[in-house]
Design a protein around this nucleic acid. Structure first.
Lengths: 203, 203
DNA sequence: GCACTTAAGTAGCCACTGTCAACAATGTAG
DNA sequence: CTACATTGTTGACAGTGGCTACTTAAGTGC
């Protein structure tokens, strides 16, 4: 695996390697607590090396969270269907992609939504988070224009949509989406309720 | 404040005092990271005293989480209206109480949904969590029987309801429910969508 | 009074973390 | 080829935290 058996003194692209390693670790176990030294260990560098690329731990965490939001946004964009026939056909693949992102990177997803305690980075981070949010808002806007979605304030509808998918993702991460309580396909069922709530009665 | 100026050697009810102190601390700042020593400090006892009442840190955390779920359930039960006229009138105060619980005890709420990594306690904890869930299921069951709620599998409707309120609560805790993006009353707006999605079209 | 249990305090071990400072290797500009 | 900036390594410091003896105080039964 190590493509450089006699690893050169200069890693070459350690910054990216550190981020990559950290993301891998965040994807692995959700119980994992983040430590700079462990990241360095796994990246195969000394414990102080990361300080050449990040001022401190918080900076790395903030960057990871931002990358997480970017990836989530990309993932959702990629999942967006070309020419959906119904509202449900449109949002289902996106919702699936969202939930998949969360369950595949549980710790990262949690980090994304708990890292903005440091208010300094908060602004930038919120920008990224709200960029993800905008995907949903756009769908609603177009849907309302096309008449497939009830004419209600978009903010409220967006709150419902994001709240729902975020909540389901969190519950899934925490292993609380047990079939006996929530059915075998909770996402589909919940989306049904959402679609019926957002969609125009006529359609 | 200290009702025992010359604190006796034996605290008397240290176990409860520790839990109380820990809950207070969890309610304060959400950025707070839990440490046994700090709890002991704030409780005014030595750093090893808690070990006389809890085998280890995880045990205390698990108990706190369980108490959290119990309190949440009580809070929701108390908020349940007597004779609601509409579905919306019925769920709105409950949803409000739920969100209030989360925003008033942010760290506790997070703990409740991230502590069951320790799989040993997982079972008991999930029981409590699902007990909260049952309140929602009961509402849906009665609503379907009375005809005010669409006849769909209850599990799916419950998933939608819990997912939505849990998601909104989490977003609120993380300060992501900003009015400019999500409206001035995101909870009410989201509940509108939910009610329209769950409620019978005729009603 | 006296032994015994319980509940607290004191002291400390051990592991670990974030961070910094000093040093070494490597690349680069002149 | 030499001076310098980069990037990585080593080592250490200070602080913390969980946890474990041992010790001391306080209640309890006899």
């Amino acid at each position: 695996m190590q493509d450089t058996p006699s690893r050169p003194y200069h890693h070459g692209d350690l910054r990216r390697a550190i981020i990559e390693t950290a993301l891998d670790m965040l994807a692995e176990e959700k119980g994992w607590q983040f430590t700079l030294r462990e990241v360095a260990r796994r990246a195969g560098v000394s414990h102080a090396a990361p300080y050449k690329h990040f001022p401190d731990k918080a900076a790395l965490l903030a960057e990871l969270a931002m990358i997480g939001f970017d990836r989530l946004r990309e993932s959702l964009s990629a999942a967006k269907p070309e020419a959906p026939e119904t509202l449900r056909d449109e949002i289902t693949p996106i919702a699936r992609a969202y939930l998949a992102f969360g369950t595949e990177n549980p710790a990262l997803y949690r980090l994304m939504f708990s890292a903005e305690e440091g208010k300094a980075v908060g602004m930038h981070l919120n920008e990224r988070a709200l960029a993800v949010f905008d995907i949903l808002r756009e769908i609603l806007r177009l849907g309302q224009a096309a008449g497939s979605i009830r004419k209600r304030p978009i903010e409220g509808q967006a709150a419902a949509g994001w709240g729902l998918i975020h909540g389901l993702t969190m519950l899934a991460i925490d292993g609380l989406l047990v079939p006996e309580k929530v059915g075998s396909a909770p996402l589909d069922a919940a989306l049904s309720a959402l679609v019926e709530g957002l969609g125009s009665p006529a359609t």
